[in-house]
Design a protein around this nucleic acid. Sequence first.
RNA 1: GGCCCGUUCGUCUAUCGGCUAGGACGCAAGAUUUUCAUUCUUGAAAGACGAGUUCGACUCUCGUACGGGCUGCCA
Length: 511
Amino acid sequence: MSREVRVRFAPSPTGPLHIGGVRTALYNYLFARRHGGKMLLRIEDTDSQRFVPGAEEYIIESLKWCGIEIDEGVGVGGPHAPYRQSERKDIYLKYAMQLIDAGWAYYAFDTPEELDALRAEAEQKGDTFAYNFKVREQLATSLCLSKEEVEARIARGDQWVVRFKMPENEVVKMDDLIRGHVEMNTSTLDDKVLYKSADALPTYHLANIVDDHLMEVSHVIRGEEWLPSLPLHYLLYRAFGWEDTRPEFAHLPLLLKPTGGGKLSKRDGDKMGFPVFPLFWTSPTTGETARGYREDGYLPEAFINMLALLGWNPGTEQEIFSMQELVEAFSLDRVSKAGARFQPDKAKWFNAQYFRALDREQLAAIYQPILREHGIETSDELAGKAADIMKERVTLTTDLWDLTSFFFVAPTTYEEKLAKKQWKGDNPAMLAELREVLLSIEDFSKENTEVVVRAWLEQKGFSLGQVMNTLRLALVGEGKGPGMFDVTEFIGREECVRRIDNIIANLKPME
RNA sequence: GGCCCGUUCGUCUAUCGGCUAGGACGCAAGAUUUUCAUUCUUGAAAGACGAGUUCGACUCUCGUACGGGCUGCCA
């Protein structure tokens, strides 16, 4: 049986998407593209309590920044619209009732308080309360209440939920594309809530199965935290009579905190010393903010490349992958089983690799907004050139200004260590002489300037290091930066002279 | 606690019974360099433990330990 590949990314809008979610979306996307299928975006907002305004927009913008394209779903539309579960409300009740009618589910009237009490009681005895075959006939459920009583309770407006009637002692045999064959005994499982009358909304389990079926999803690729509910999902497909079209499942290894203490979560914010979100986020309720990869100066291609390799590998030694290359190389059976700790240093390395591959036009586009923030108006050509000269030293795009500001702004202070070493003895006089040499140069290209200056220093018997470092002190102010002839060419003859005059006038020789 | 999943260098990983266990990040040393970087070379660094299967186990089986997930009218 081969059917059209249709996968979905189905986040819950309870806050910003974290990088684990992005990776899940990415693997879904790669799988869809690899097999010529469709990528859907469904918003699972069935928990009215945890809904966070702005989260959906954030998710969409994040995917867009990452280059993960949605073929069908929220923000795009499609044949199975709507794709927001809160807008599909009326669909689910019917299915919940169908399950009750078929004996696969039942009404339960326990209040949250009663359940809390039962849990507390069990805990006191060192037990864990489970809502299952052992207790369901002793509780306020349609399994033991009379039909009249059930109807009366519903009619009078008592709140109820629909629970799945988990069979007793049955071994559910499941197959996972990543983990292989998995078996679980239903006696260890409990009767999950499928539908809640309080807000007339299904829970994840029901909505998920119904929507995946209705939307003709062929493969469910999701985090490993869902593995324990797989038997329930299998049983739901069976209860609905949809086993023939039940999707294949793949449970991805979790992304762990770098400290090793559990799975990465939204609450980690950026307290780990690196962003856990793709984009900057401001909480609409608390006003709290969290850093994002985009704002921190990462290139989306580098970010994606890094994420792709966290839990998957191509089996070759290739490390740098464009999205297209990822699509071509991706396969679920090369996804690893063990959780992966996120490693911030590697993300930086990827970014540095991608940054140096940028051409001047791309560099200018990235650098111009940063320059403007610093009050520098310049041409795209010069912005691109400045960034290009220094690009091998850039890790994050936010490094750019620190690394290249001297191209645009003359130094006002001089690094003490370098000044102590260079601004003494004959060096000030030597620099004054070099000023005249520079003034005399007609063709100020770096190649020509270098020829002239080298000839001069050889004739004078100066050492290259001495001259260059003193000149660096005058033009850059610090012991860093590109080759000095890159600097002279970039800032031009007049600016060179001006900066030399500046240091001679303002910095007293050391001794 | 119960159920489930996992376990190769510090980290991400390769190895699908024959290994001198490979690569990458990071780290260290050296070389190149007008500074800082880059680059290049080299190095240190791993099969959780115990049984079994086998001519042979990192690879298969079982147990133990450890890690993780789930155990909500959250997803």
